[in-house]
Structure formats: C-alpha cells, structure tokens
C-alpha cells in the first residue's frame, strides 16, 4: 500500500466516462431508416474508478478489450474529458492541457504511430525536439542514450516505412521519451511484436524506470509484460475497478480454485477407473500425469483424499497460472 507521507503522482477519484453511440441495425430497411432518424445509446466506458500511484511506480492496467483501459489512459493524458469525477497528475488537472503539464507526460500507443512515414526517424525526432523546445545539447544526449539503450543505431537513417514492426516500436519509444517525461502512459507497447523484441522492450522499460524513476502506467494483453514489469496491477472490467494490488495476490483473490498436479505410479487407461474427490475436475491428463481443478477451500481435503485413494508418487497444489485466472475473469465478468 502506498504510504500517505508523500502525495501521489497520479490521483484518480470516481472517474467516469459515458459515451453516446448511434445504434444501427443490419438490413436494408434499417439503413434507410437510420438516414432519417438515429437512436442513441449511452455506453458507460468507465465507471467511478479510483486509485492513486506514487512516483516511480510501474503499474499494470489490465482488463479485457473494451474494459475502459484506453479511455482511462486518455483521460489521464488529457485527451478526453471525463463525464464525472476528478483526476490529478503531477499536480495538474490533465484535461486542462496546460503546456507545463504536456511537457512532463508522454503517451506511447502500440497501434498508432507518431512517426512521419516517408522519412527517417532522425527527422521526426528533430521536429519533436523543436516542438518541445529542447536545448540542442540535451536533445543530443537524450537521443544518444535512448538509441544506445535500445540498440537501434542502424535504423536512424532509413525511412520509417522500410522499418520492421519492432524497429518502429523502438522509434515510438524514443519519440515518446525525448523530452524526458515524468509520467509515461503505455498502451499495448508490445502489440504484434515477436518474443525477442517484446523482451527487449521490457528490459528497456525496466532499465529506464530504474534510471530515471519515471512513473509508468501500462496496459497490455500480454500478461508476460505485466509480470515482468509491474509489481502492482489494476484490473478493470466493464468500466469498473475489480482489483488493485500486488500482482501475486491477484490469483489468490480472483481464482476461487487451485490446481492439483498428480503423478501416479501407473499409466491411466480409462478415466472411470480413477476414484476422484467430489467436485474435482480433470483439466489435463497425460500418461501418468494428471491435473485437477478443485475449490480453493477444498484443496487440502482433496489432496488427502487423493493420497488416500490413489497410488500417488508426487502431488503439488498450486495457484492457477495468471493467464487462466484472467481468462476466467474476462469470461465471467466478476470476482
């Protein structure tokens, strides 16, 4: 839990965003009708979210598609006005979009690019240097350092359109960090990248965070990103905050079951030959290995039952993998 002595860098209280979207049905008649009159529907993208983040923290912001992650991120960056609620970042109200605020934040979007397409990255960086009016020496130093950290010397002079997806993402990171922001919003920074580039990006973010103490709020669908970078996660679903706390507490709190892994001293021929505890569900089965899902509270008794009834050579009880927990939360939509 963040200490109360220093005030948080990001402070969010009851933040809410409601959209009006036109409704549209399929078919001929409906398309004609919609030309005349459109009906609208209120969509609550974000509902009364509250949290705060301390300086230098790296927080994972997770949830399924359409949960409201990007909307929240955009409100904090000042691109969107909230419908209700309050937020403060670095002591500023984001959506006032004061110059002093904009100079200290940055947003990197995995599915959008701020690079100019037809020219080398170096030229885009030059323009950004002017826009943020960076002194020449500082610009040079920052650029050299970032390029060095990301190992992207060779791509600086090629047109962006000729770069690979991974190289482009590195450029986006440089573009986002040139003005040394104090708060960095990252929206799916590893989208579509291969495993080795994903790791490279993660290592870079980790190093950069340690070196400069930048506060990072990161959304990602790759739990590997979150696990590698964020000790703390905030989970939202259908616009509501479901969990805010340590990553390793997520499974405990959210998954009402545990996995029991068994190794038997004989091969398993047919399932009905096994005597299983009540409510245990077979998840995996291979030769003499067996994985069962049991209720969290029932785990000890189930283990005892299994040891008693079967010829077990090995038995472990563990929390389900984080991906499986997330999958369950996303599908059921509640904790």
């Amino acid at each position: 839990m963040p200490s109360l002595s220093n005030s948080p860098v990001i402070f969010v209280r009851n933040l809410t965003k409601t959209y009006r979207v036109p409704e549209r049905e399929s078919g001929l008649g409906a398309s004609l009708k919609s030309m005349v009159r459109r009906s609208y529907q209120d969509v609550k993208a974000v509902q009364e979210i509250s949290f705060s983040i301390q300086a230098g923290e790296m927080v994972g912001f997770i949830g399924p598609n359409g949960a409201g992650k990007t909307t929240t991120l955009k409100m904090l960056a000042g691109i969107l006005y909230p419908s209700e609620g309050a937020a403060q970042v670095l002591g500023h109200i984001p959506w006032k979009r004061e110059t002093a605020y904009l100079r200290r934040i940055s947003i990197v979007l995995g599915n959008k690019s701020q690079m100019l397409w037809d020219i080398p990255p170096l030229d885009t960086f030059g323009v950004l240097g002017e826009i943020y009016s960076l002194p020449a020496a500082e610009y040079r130093n920052t650029l050299d350092e970032l390029v060095d950290l990301l190992g992207m010397e060779e791509v600086l002079k090629k047109p962006v359109r000729n770069l690979s997806l991974g190289e482009r993402m590195k450029c986006e990171l440089v573009a986002g960090l040139l003005h040394r922001p104090a708060v960095l919003f990252l929206d799916e920074p590893t989208l579509g990248l291969d495993i080795s580039i994903q790791r490279r990006v993660r290592d870079f973010l980790c190093q950069y965070n340690q070196r400069y103490g930048v506060t990072v709020l990161l959304t990602s669908h790759y739990m590997a990103d979150v696990m590698a970078l964020c000790p703390r996660v905030i989970l939202i679903h259908h616009g509501k905050l479901l969990y805010d706390g340590r990553l390793d507490g997520l499974a405990q709190q959210l998954a009402p079951f545990k996995l029991v892994r068994l190794t038997l001293n004989h091969g398993i021929s047919t399932t009905n030959a096994l005597d299983l505890p009540p409510n245990a569900e077979i998840i995996e089965q291979e030769n003499s290995h067996l994985t069962l899902r049991v209720d969290r509270e029932a785990a000890p008794s189930a283990a005892a039952y299994l040891l008693d009834k079967l010829a077990v050579t090995d038995l472990t009880i563990e929390d389900p993998p984080i991906e499986a927990v997330m999958d369950q939360v996303y599908q059921e939509g509640n904790v």
């Binding site: 904009l102 979007l109 959008k112």
Partner: peptide, 13 residues
C-alpha cells in the same frame, strides 16, 4: 479519422 490526433493534442503548444 485515423485517431492519430491524440499525439497532436498532446503537443505543448
């Protein structure tokens, strides 16, 4: 259209 306006809106000028 493309949604890239986000970057432009964040420029301190």
């Amino acid at each position: 259209w493309s949604g890239n306006l986000d970057f432009t809106l964040l420029r301190p000028m």
